[in-house]
């Protein structure tokens, strides 16, 4: 039997631990090489795909991911070059990162994985409903929006469990409790890490500001789509930490993502079957 251990949170050491994290998770060297290749205008998509295909582990991971039932491409994608053309480089890079990071998540944090994948689906669905270009980038921003939480779970699991319990007791959103304890929240951590990984701003800003959608100077629409997806999934009971109450969203969300009641209903109808079927998948199956 598992006993609930009461952990007294040492705020100072926890904060120190988290601050030192920003240089912990590193990207495979390979990605650095690819980033350099892409900066060279002479590199063609096909040449890049060919180079990427040389790494078998990475190739099989990418193909497994893009072909998995929930990623949502109809039909089979059999080459990395195809995946690259369909997703674009930025989305693909985000996907590779997410599969590396989610791999280390303990089964106990499974709801966080479920939440991330459904927010990804919802972000894509909202972007599609609004006829926005590059919907795969929205999907990846959704997938990575809580990457800060994943890192907290992986690197400071005991302390983070205490934070979650405290949020539940206070019945307040988790990011507010994190802010009170750490002075920063999981979105801030996500922003540091993504900047460290040199992800483009169109991805780092929605990740870093999904709880403060009016704060950034640019990419308001992208932030609003991911925040809206997060609210929608949590309203369906798909939050990463049980049923914490929904906070009143910033008015900028409705301004940027003006969805009608009919559109919201349509989005819910579309997301529910995936939401339910994902519950049956274990996290291991995506990696």
């Amino acid at each position: 039997m598992k006993m609930e251990k009461e952990v007294i949170l040492d705020k100072i050491s926890f904060r120190k631990k988290v601050e030192q994290l920003s240089n912990l998770p590193t990207l495979p060297n390979l990605l650095d090489k690819f980033t350099r290749m892409l900066k060279d205008p002479k590199t063609s998509m096909a040449a890049f795909g060919k180079e990427l295909s040389k790494d078998q582990m990475l190739t099989s991971k990418i193909l497994k991911l893009v072909n998995s039932a929930f990623y949502g491409f109809p039909g089979r994608i059999s080459t990395v070059t195809n995946a690259l053309v369909l997703l674009g480089y930025d989305a693909l890079k985000g996907l590779i990162i997410s599969s590396n990071i989610f791999e280390n998540l303990s089964p106990e944090a499974y709801p966080l994985w479920h939440h991330s994948v459904t927010v990804s689906l919802a972000s894509r669905a909202i972007a599609r409903e609004l006829s926005l270009p590059d919907i795969e980038e929205f999907a990846v921003a959704g997938l990575l929006h809580d990457i800060g939480k994943v890192i907290l779970h992986v690197e400071a699991s005991e302390e983070y469990r205490t934070v979650i319990n405290q949020a539940k007791k206070a019945k307040q959103p988790i990011w507010q409790t994190e802010g009170e304890i750490l002075g920063f929240d999981h979105a801030n951590i996500g922003l540091w890490i993504c900047e460290e990984w040199k992800l483009p701003k169109k991805l780092t800003i929605p990740i870093g500001y999904h709880h403060m959608p009016a704060a950034p100077k640019e990419y308001h629409m992208r932030v609003a789509v991911v925040t809206m997806a997060d609210i929608l999934v949590r309203s369906m009971g798909g939050g990463a930490e049980d049923d914490l109450p929904l906070e009143t969203p910033d008015p900028i969300i409705e301004k940027q993502v003006p969805l009608t009641l009919k559109q919201i209903r349509k989005l819910i109808e579309g997301i529910v079957p995936e939401f339910e079927s994902l519950k049956r998948l274990a996290p291991k199956e995506i990696n």
């Binding site: 949590r234 309203s235 109450p245 929904l246 906070e247 009143t248 009641l261 819910i268």
Partner: peptide, 19 residues
Amino acid sequence: RFVASYNSNSLLGKIKIAL
């Protein structure tokens, strides 16, 4: 889940009605 204050015309209101 919907404990925050809002009216039925707001974003949260619409989400709740749709759900």
